[in-house]
Simulated assay, not measured.
Amino acid sequence: MAKKVVRVIPHEESIEVRVSTYVYFDDNPGRRSINGRVSRDEAVAEAKRIAREARDG
Rank of each mutant, 00 (worst) to 15 (best):
K3L: 12
G36E: 05
A43R: 01
F25E: 04
S14W: 01
M1C: 12
R32D: 01
R49N: 05
V17A: 04
E13W: 05
S20Q: 15
E13P: 02
R32V: 00
D27T: 13
V8D: 03
T21H: 10
A2C: 07
V44T: 10
S33Y: 07
G30Y: 04
E42R: 09
A45W: 03
V23D: 06
G57H: 02
G57Q: 05
A47W: 00
I15W: 03
D41P: 00
V6L: 06
A54D: 14
D27S: 12
R37Y: 13
P10R: 01
R52V: 06
D56L: 07
S33R: 15
S20M: 14
R37H: 09
T21A: 12
T21D: 02
R49Y: 05
R49T: 13
T21Y: 14
G57I: 00
N28M: 04
A43S: 07
D41Y: 00
Y24D: 15
E53L: 14
D56N: 10
Y24F: 14
R32P: 03
I15N: 07
R7A: 02
S39A: 14
G57R: 12
I9K: 04
D41Q: 13
R40N: 13
H11I: 00
S20R: 14
A2L: 09
V23L: 06
E13I: 08
M1R: 12
V5Q: 14
E16Q: 09
D27W: 00
R40L: 15
I50N: 02
D26P: 01
G57A: 10
K4N: 09
K48F: 11
F25H: 12
E53N: 15
V44G: 01
G36K: 12
N28C: 06
R18W: 09
V5A: 13
G30W: 03
V17C: 02
E16W: 04
R7Y: 01
V38W: 03
I9T: 07
G36W: 09
D41K: 11
V19H: 13
D26F: 01
I34M: 14
E16G: 02
P10T: 00
A45Q: 08
